[in-house]
């Protein structure tokens, strides 16, 4: 499919990518007037994509994922189909990768995205950074219709309106308890 691209300052972005950006981001990059023009262009563009679904297998069971952002904490799991990994980068590099580089990859090939250890991605202002990153993920997920899987500490559960949460915790007698969307699924 032929993509239409627009110049956004020094960047060349596809129209679906443009739809992922907030007014505040565009205003900082290209000024108010140009941001307004780009937003109108993005608004007119309709993205018609089939949603990509994924599946998490976690030993005891599996969970089907629709487009949205899912939190996994404390357990080993695999994702099918193979996801795009966003690992390594921190702070501004991580956010830039998420907001600019990832959608460019998704333009050529859509797949689920896996973000490892979200709370360790920021050296300062961790809560603000995590919320901003999750907001970016939510926007990309909504436009490109792909699921995001985020791993991290169970404390992240209250930070966002997750599509699904899979959290493994220790019970009072040391037994492992798995919570899937807040419901106890397995005692071990």
């Amino acid at each position: 499919m032929r993509q239409e691209y627009v110049e956004v300052g020094k960047l060349r972005l596809s129209l679906p990518h443009l739809k992922c950006l907030r007014r505040e981001e565009l205003e900082q990059w290209v000024g108010n007037h140009e941001a307004e023009r780009l937003l109108a262009k993005a608004f007119k563009h309709k993205v018609v994509l089939k949603p990509i679904h994924a599946e998490i297998r976690y030993g005891y069971g599996r969970l089907a994922l629709s487009p949205g952002v899912t939190l996994v904490s404390g357990l080993e799991f695999t994702i099918t189909p193979p996801p795009i990994y966003l690992s390594g980068d921190r702070d501004a590099d991580f956010l830039w990768n998420l907001l600019v580089i990832l959608p460019q990859r998704l333009d050529s090939m859509r797949a689920p995205v896996y973000v490892e250890e979200l709370e360790n991605r920021f050296s300062c202002n961790v809560i603000e950074g995590a919320k901003y990153a999750l907001d970016v993920m939510e926007r990309i997920s909504s436009v490109y219709k792909i699921p995001f899987v985020v791993s991290g500490s169970a404390e992240l559960v209250n930070l966002w309106g997750w599509l699904h949460t899979l959290i493994k915790a220790r019970g009072s007698r040391g037994e492992a308890v798995l919570f899937v969307d807040g419901e106890v699924k397995v005692f071990r």
């Binding site: 960047l11 505040e24 900082q28 990059w29 501004a92 956010l95 202002n125 901003y132």
Partner: peptide, 12 residues
């Protein structure tokens, strides 16, 4: 949010 400003600077 300080990260919004960081991204703003980077994309200018």
């Amino acid at each position: 949010n300080p990260w919004l400003q960081v991204i703003g600077e980077r994309g200018k």
